[in-house]
């Protein structure tokens, strides 16, 4: 099956192709400027995941999975959480308390991307984590299914056929 035949109509595909880059950029902006303007890691991560959801809906599941397969997404997910935790633990050892701000020697300029100590790093970590995990949730709900292989053992499988047949 050729790629053009999958997914939604041509109009949707063309509009998606135009708009996807801007949405991704907007998501990254929301993450990076999270400590200055409304937003932050979680909303930005959701927007970034929204890009991949949009791609899945309009082009079928292969296109986003080629860019970001689920193993990599799972690893990014864990990586984001670990970075956040690492910032917390560094705060414990470089400063006094857990999650304390330890970048205090930075020039104190207001309204610059790198101005609020560890908060931008935390935002980046959260953005990574949330984006990857919401993408994973979507992909797992939409694409995989469980089949049983023998007694008590289960196996996760990629779904081969298209949409699930309704009763």
């Amino acid at each position: 099956m050729k790629e053009e035949e999958k997914g939604l109509s041509t109009i949707v595909k063309v509009v998606t192709r135009w708009i996807v880059g801007f949405i991704l950029l907007f998501g990254i902006y929301i993450v990076i400027f999270g400590h200055l303007t409304p937003g932050g890691g979680f909303p930005g991560g959701v927007i970034i995941a929204g890009v991949f959801v949009l791609l899945t809906l309009s082009f079928g599941r292969e296109v986003p999975l080629r860019k970001l397969n689920s193993t990599l997404a799972s690893e990014l997910d864990s990586f984001g959480a670990l970075v956040f935790l690492l910032v917390g633990i560094l705060g414990l050892y470089l400063a006094t308390y857990f999650a304390q701000n330890f970048i205090t020697t930075f020039p104190q300029q207001y309204f610059r991307p790198f101005s609020a100590g560890v908060i931008p790093i935390c935002n980046l970590a959260i953005g990574l984590k949330v984006g990857a995990s919401i993408f994973m949730v979507f992909i797992i709900l939409a694409v995989t299914r469980v089949i049983s292989v023998g007694e008590g053992r289960m196996k996760m499988l990629r779904k081969r056929t298209g949409r699930r047949r309704r009763k």
Partner: peptide
């Protein structure tokens, strides 16, 4: 709290 949380995310990696 940090050790189990960290290990929980470290194991799948």
């Amino acid at each position: 709290v940090a050790i189990p949380l960290g290990t929980a995310f470290f194991i799948p990696m």
